[in-house]
Amino acid sequence: MNVEQQNLFRFLVGLGDDAVVLSHRLSEWCSNGPYLEEDIALSNIALDYIGRARMFYQYAAEIEGKGRTEDDIAYLRDERQFTNLLIHELPINDFAFTMVRQFFVDVYYCEYLKQLCESKDERIAAIAAKAVKESRYHLKRSEPWIRQLSEGTEESRRRIQAALVELENFVGELFIMSDWEKELVEAGIAVDREKLQAGWDQYIQKFLAESDLEFPDSQLQIRGGRDGIHTEHLGHMLSDMQYVQRVYPGLEW
């Protein structure tokens, strides 16, 4: 791989990691939802993200050209090699936390993927075109949930506030770019995430203000996901997720 291919590979794996990690978290709700309809709905979102992860990994494996599969990438790397943005890996916590996180990433992906549809790389543009439709639907679901929980009972509001505080410091990383990713932006392949922050802040703050909630411009940003520096939660997720592949190496399932 030349440098540009290396960057592209890294880029695709990062997006695949974001999706695979969030899908894993969402799938943890299966049989644990607050009622059956919501349980089923959350699984659908998890399935969207698994699909997304597979598309990014498959393309990454092709770019790399070493004969690795999507599963090799998902199941045979350890936590220092995973490069997802940290917000995706945080445990599901309670329903409020899951929904606030979802709302945050939905708003983010709606804009991010919309711009990624313009990528000069046709394959990436096609994946983005499919994924953006999913995210628009996800947002249509998560937004009213935040409204209902914010204005429902005292308890639900308190839980939403707690989730906002907990997520506060993990949002900034969505908008931090590395040099190699900037090179991809210049090549017309990637999206400049830095430029999305102002719009995101405005959208979120306006929405929350309507329910009398505040979300601060966070100065403190926890970062490191794209460089493989994670929270402690990821390792446990991977030991669960990769269990079969690690115990029985090299087999077909």
Binding site: Y35, E37, A41, N44
Partner: peptide, 20 residues
Amino acid sequence: SLHAESPEHALMYARDCYIR
């Protein structure tokens, strides 16, 4: 049928429950 808190939610749940 299904259970939902509002017509809007019912519509979304119907999508997830009946036209998967």
